[in-house]
Design a protein around this nucleic acid. Structure first.
Length: 200
DNA sequence: TGAATGATCGTCT
DNA sequence: GACGATCATTCAA
């Protein structure tokens, strides 16, 4: 069951970041389908969030994607090497987003092994935002894609985590965001081995 | 036109 | 546990 566009227009990005845990992220590239369960996310709270690219209503060519209506992907290059995949949420001109930080491989593990050049038995294959995106074959050509299309989409497989199985904590790699770096806007599935390590 | 800067990962010790 | 890779984007001039 594919999530409808209306799901992403929810204006509570913190709710969506938690609710997306357990949903299944699919990509289809050259007829090859891969999918993984989302097990770790971070919320980026639009213009008020110092860690967000759209902080202070900074509207540029790159951040323009974030200002789209919910249900659009936002992919950008980090450290010159890694593609990071975000889900744009809320309504038009309200630049909230959820960063997918880790997935648990579900479909097309052999394809992921090829892309990552390592066995699927290693959790590193999709742990961390750069790795998860690469395992799914996501690169900058996926920027500004409609998540209800047939290249990239998210399904609800009725995987429901109890509230006690979800943990929240500070986001990773955003120390420059000062007081906003301490906000508990990172969510993950407790004990899941694909969740990236938090490095204090 | 140019210099600085990351929402990170993998390799090496 | 430390560090180098590597480039689009951004802002200043």
């Amino acid at each position: 069951m594919k999530l409808p566009l209306s799901y992403y227009s929810n204006q509570d990005v913190l709710f969506l970041a938690q609710d997306l845990l357990g949903k299944v992220l699919f990509t289809e590239i050259d007829g090859e389908i891969t999918a993984g369960i989302i097990v770790e996310t971070e919320a980026y709270f639009g213009v008020q969030d110092k860690a967000s690219h759209a902080y202070g209503d900074r509207r540029t060519d790159r951040t323009e994607t974030l200002y789209s209506h919910g249900g659009i992907s936002y992919v950008y290059l980090c450290y010159g090497i890694h593609h990071l995949f975000n889900i744009v949420t809320s309504i038009e001109n309200d630049p909230h987003a959820v960063l997918v930080r880790a997935i648990e491989p579900l479909i097309g593990k052999d394809i992921m092994e090829k892309r990552r050049n390592m066995p699927a038995s290693r959790t590193a294959i999709s742990s961390g935002p750069g790795s998860a995106a690469k395992a799914l074959g996501i690169d900058r050509s996926f920027n500004k894609k409609d998540l209800s299309g047939n290249e990239i989409w998210i399904e609800n497989h009725n995987i429901q985590y109890a509230e006690a199985d979800i943990e929240a904590g500070p986001r990773v790699g955003v120390a420059y965001a000062q007081e906003d770096a301490l906000l508990p806007w990172r969510f993950w599935v407790k004990g899941n081995k694909y969740v990236s390590k938090y490095n204090p």
